[in-house]
């Protein structure tokens, strides 16, 4: 697989949200607005790239029976680093995402890529894989966030184009499922055509 393919496959073929259906918990919970979805995507991207790189380095010396605990410790470390950095420098985003920052540790995209890719490939390929899948996650979350914000609040990235409230249900959990479901339909329709 070429280097370019490693980066682009996360957008369409191996899109974590619409094709692999991984990381559904943060996807449904944090996409209440475009900016929240984007921030969550970027936070996950950061952890994914670093943990992929670190894990590809330690995979060879890690005994088989303890590889999951080792990976989890590595991932948890990067998440905590991210949490501290966000708390210090971007407090507004930190408080908007709340509990979902620490929960990146258990995001199955990250452990999934570690197991399926990083543990079997070299550092550079693993980093590219992290960037590709991470960007796919960023784009998916931002798109869901934009749709939910337009329908639910009548605004895009905080810029309001109607007065008053939108359709409140789209900000709540049912709206998350509806938007995700319909976007998945469109996505698969597009894939089937190709």
């Amino acid at each position: 697989m070429s280097k370019m393919q490693l980066i682009t496959k996360g957008f369409v073929k191996d899109n974590p949200t619409f094709v692999l259906l991984l990381g559904m918990c943060p996807t449904l919970a944090t996409t209440t607005s475009a900016i929240n979805g984007l921030s969550m995507g970027l936070a996950t991207l950061f952890v994914l790239v670093l943990s992929n790189m670190a894990i590809s380095l330690v995979a060879k010396v890690t005994p088989d029976k303890v590889h999951i605990p080792v990976y989890i410790v590595v991932i948890a470390t990067f998440v905590t680093v991210l949490q501290l950095l966000m708390q210090a420098f971007t407090p507004a985003i930190y408080s908007a995402l709340g509990v979902f920052i620490p929960l990146i540790v258990v995001n199955c995209i990250i452990l999934g890529r570690a197991e399926a890719f990083a543990s079997k490939h070299n550092v550079i390929d693993s980093a590219l894989d992290g960037i590709g899948v991470g960007l796919g996650f960023v784009v998916s979350l931002t798109v869901i966030g934009i749709v939910r914000e337009i329908l639910g609040s009548g605004s895009v990235f905080g810029w309001k184009f109607i007065t008053g409230d939108g359709i409140l249900a789209f900000i709540m959990a049912p709206g998350a499922f509806l938007v995700l479901g319909y976007l998945m339909v469109l996505f698969n329709k597009y894939l089937a055509k190709k």
Partner: peptide
């Protein structure tokens, strides 16, 4: 692929 596990290297790596 990953190294073979024994008590020493598991404890060490962890």
């Amino acid at each position: 692929m990953a190294a073979k596990s024994n008590l020493t290297n598991m404890a060490l790596v962890l």
